[in-house]
């Protein structure tokens, strides 16, 4: 009898712990949000069938796709306590782009606000471009190189519900590094947008900073830097 009671107590404890571990969404009563806008490519052409999702804690509170004119009008639920995120061309877990040909846009809130209308205006998604930047160490020279790579990320993240937010992610991402005479050759993959430039700033042996602008003209691009 006592053993059964202990088993029951153990089971109850486990169940309580498991239920507390889950971070479930709490949907707000009596509220709907409207999220609207238009999605175009860099030439201003409408992009149809691009998914638009509102999300909180990884749950999709509302979802739709752009129509033939690139317009979307999404009616969403709201979370009671947690901030709302809006994803364009990305899944609700913010894992991957849905339409692999185009870049994505994600708007993240820092805190929950009682806002019911989000007019996102015109959102531009560029065609995806990959740059394979090879940093070759020509043996024999004893050069050191420090570098920074500035580029526009294909997965653009912007703040939501802040005063005067930025409207795009131009050259907002940066990678830095330094190369020693003994460094191996490196290949750096950069995911950006066709038509944009990748800015490669480097300094040889702590000298003046030189700049190379690498245009991304194709879906797949390569550039070799030798030192």
């Amino acid at each position: 009898m006592k053993q059964n009671f202990l088993k029951f107590l153990l089971l109850l404890t486990v169940l309580t712990t498991v239920s507390c571990l889950g971070d479930d969404v709490d949907i707000e009563n009596n509220r709907r949000l409207l999220i609207k806008g238009k999605v175009t490519d860099t030439q201003g052409n409408a992009l149809p069938n691009i998914p638009v999702i509102t999300s909180a804690l990884g749950d999709a509170l509302g979802q739709t796709t752009t129509d033939a004119n690139g317009n979307f009008r999404l009616i969403s639920l709201d979370e009671q306590f947690d901030p709302l995120d809006i994803f364009i061309n990305v899944d609700n877990f913010y894992n991957q782009q849905v339409n692999q040909d185009y870049s994505s846009r994600a708007y993240f809130s820092q805190q929950h606000v009682n806002r019911v209308l989000y007019d996102m205006g015109s959102i531009t998604l560029g065609k995806m471009a990959e740059l394979k930047l090879t940093l070759n160490n020509n043996g024999g020279d004893q050069n050191t190189v420090s570098y920074e790579i500035l580029y526009t990320p294909s997965a653009c993240e912007l703040p939501l519900n802040v005063y005067n937010p930025p409207s795009d992610c131009n050259l907002s991402e940066m990678k830095t590094g330094s190369l020693m005479p003994s460094s191996e050759n490196q290949i750096i993959s950069i995911y950006s947008i066709q038509g944009e430039n990748v800015v490669f700033n480097y300094s040889l042996n702590s000298g003046d900073t030189q700049t190379i602008e690498i245009p991304l003209t194709n879906a797949s691009n390569t550039y070799v830097f030798e030192y």
């Binding site: 479930d24 969404v25 949907i27 009563n29 009596n30 749950d59 509170l61 639920l77």
Partner: peptide
Amino acid sequence: ANRGLGDSFKDT
């Protein structure tokens, strides 16, 4: 009484 996303909420 609405149900979805593993949660329930109300419209009145």
